[in-house]
Nucleic acid binder design. Structure first.
Lengths: 214, 214
DNA sequence: CCACTTTCGGGAAAACTTCCCTAGCGAGGA
DNA sequence: TCCTCGCTAGGGAAGTTTTCCCGAAAGTGG
């Protein structure tokens, strides 16, 4: 056993975090040094504690997981982030990796996988859960782009997700710390790219692509 | 065998209608005398042919099944309408019956059920598929109102469904032949009744209640 | 008959969207 | 290196929509 791996957990449910902590500390070389509930908090704590690995839920309240990854990477391009999500849809995986995450596993994976993923990522490698890697490979292998969602830029995608979740333009602007007009402009652009007219249609699209939970 | 029962089929898919027609004509006392794709068309044809029974899909393009039922009943309060839907959610069933439908069966029912339902309804009786009747009974038996959707009036519900489907205010107004301002006002009212802020949230609600297909 | 609810919409003010334009920044190619 | 292109971010003006408040007709139940 070499050095201890310091980990920050980011998930909005305290109970869930507690569970992860237990799981992770099964391995004596991993230590959870801090926890955050929201993306904003995670960014602050990351600066303070500099954990070697961040284990983060993709579906965070507020700013959301993707934007958080981007913010962390912006602060520290070498940040090692493992996404831990209930979603196994390629759309999300691709976005997360593009945003700078080093790994992606789903919550349905075996407990050992979490530990293994953290260790691999701490070691500077990447980690993709097997099924996900396969899905992704198959998808990109066949048709170039699956959906119209791929025509959205990273930022547009952020805005899209929040709008589809039911955020108002104002709320999106606050969450992403953008100007109100910016979001309004993005919204128009997104609608035209996806050829929809209303945010209800966006929600529908998001559902179809499994980007929204319930 | 007494008189032949004349039937009008209303469904937007030609193939599907063809299938129904075959099914129905298995019974020698049923005759399909006309077919319509949309609610508007159904209303016209009903006036022309006066079928004894209307077999109608709940999810029609445009105006939708519920509004069509209401329009038919407005023209002829004795119209005998059998709803034939993929949905077995109480929310829809209740609305359909309130609107004036005489029966409700789902597309997963056995073929004989369709014939039986038509015959029963032609005979002046009502017909509810067994599972549906049970669900409904259990639901209304336990808690008075299941969801906040029940606080919507019939018209509000129409508007809600179309908005959730992605219609713009303008489009809803056209479909329901209402003034633009009326729909805008309904929209505001609906949002407040359902305590949502955006149409995306409405879509979400509609999904949760199974009011939207895909 | 009265009260209540539902349906329908007008008017004014506030909010939002759309369209067009500018500007910085980073990536990629000639 | 320089140029171009796309992404990100937002301003201004005009147009559209939403909101809030109000009135009125029609139907319903007591």
């Amino acid at each position: 056993m070499i050095n201890t791996i310091s980990v920050m957990l980011v998930d909005d449910h305290a109970v869930v975090r507690a569970g992860y902590r237990l799981l992770l500390t099964q391995s004596s070389d991993i230590k959870v040094i801090c926890e955050a509930e929201r993306g904003e908090e995670a960014c602050q704590l990351y600066g303070l504690h500099r954990p070697q690995v961040v284990v983060m839920d993709l579906s965070l309240p507020g700013i959301g997981g993707l934007a958080t990854v981007r913010r962390l990477i912006a602060r520290d391009p070498n940040a090692r982030i493992l996404m831990f999500s209930i979603h196994d849809e390629p759309a999300y995986v691709v976005r997360a990796l593009e945003a700078g995450a080093k790994g992606y596993i789903t919550k349905s994976c075996a407990p050992e996988i979490l530990v293994e993923a953290v260790e691999r990522i701490a070691g500077g490698q990447n980690y993709l859960e097997h099924e996900i890697a396969q899905k992704l490979a198959l998808q990109t292998g066949t048709t170039a782009q699956s959906s119209s969602l791929n025509s959205l830029s990273a930022r547009e995608f952020d805005v899209f997700c929040l709008l589809a979740k039911g955020y108002t333009t104002r709320e999106v602007a606050e969450e992403l710390r953008l100007g109100y007009k910016t979001v309004a402009n993005y919204t128009t652009l997104i609608k035209s790219k996806l050829s929809v007219n209303t945010s209800a249609e966006m929600a529908r699209l998001a559902y179809r692509h499994g980007l929204i939970a319930s």
